[in-house]
């Protein structure tokens, strides 16, 4: 009886990603949202882990066909408290990161750590580079304390983006 009811539900339920909804399988994360090509992308910065900045990516494919998601070569830049800009690469000890095809109307998520030689007051990611889309779409995030609140603004000499913001670099 339970099996029969379950099969009946399968017929009427479509569990696919709804374009523009930003409702992902992992649930809602309060990240910055942007649409690049076929991808709805949400990015949030999490408290640092073992000296690395951590970005949580969620992405949904708006299109009915597969779309590229390239977390391996996405452009990520960090700024130290002294204003020094560093190009960041994700922590990938086993060399697993690669560009993948996300199926049509599918979604996914990944959290990546970006090691840096010193603590990063701000981390920016070009969301368009995830999809190899044209125009850069920079999303920037201030450092979070372990309780998830934005850390004290430590940027010198340009402390403007204390909160998260989309900027052009």
């Amino acid at each position: 009886m339970v099996v029969r009811a379950s099969l009946a539900l399968v017929v009427v339920t479509a569990c696919t990603y709804k374009p523009g909804s930003f409702r992902f399988a992992d649930g809602h994360v309060a990240g910055q949202r942007v649409t690049v090509g076929c991808l709805d992308v949400s990015v949030a910065r999490r408290p640092d882990l073992a000296g690395s900045a951590v970005l949580e990516y969620q992405f949904g494919n708006r299109c009915s066909r597969a779309a590229l998601v390239d977390l391996a070569t996405a452009k990520v830049v960090g700024r130290t408290a002294r204003g020094q800009e560093l190009r960041l690469a994700p922590y990938d000890p086993r060399g697993e990161l690669t560009a993948l095809q996300l199926g049509g109307r599918s979604d996914g998520s990944e959290s990546l750590a970006y090691p840096a030689s010193e603590r990063l007051a701000q981390v920016c990611v070009d969301a368009a580079s995830l999809a190899h889309a044209g125009e850069p779409r920079w999303l920037c995030f201030a450092r979070l304390d372990n309780d998830g609140a934005p850390g004290a603004t430590e940027l010198e000499p340009d402390p403007a983006p204390a909160a998260t913001a989309e900027v052009s670099l």
Binding site: L100, Q101, G108
Partner: peptide, 11 residues
């Protein structure tokens, strides 16, 4: 593992 949500290009 990484990428349980996708499949490799060229697969």
């Amino acid at each position: 593992k990484f990428g349980s949500w996708g499949r490799p290009r060229g697969e």
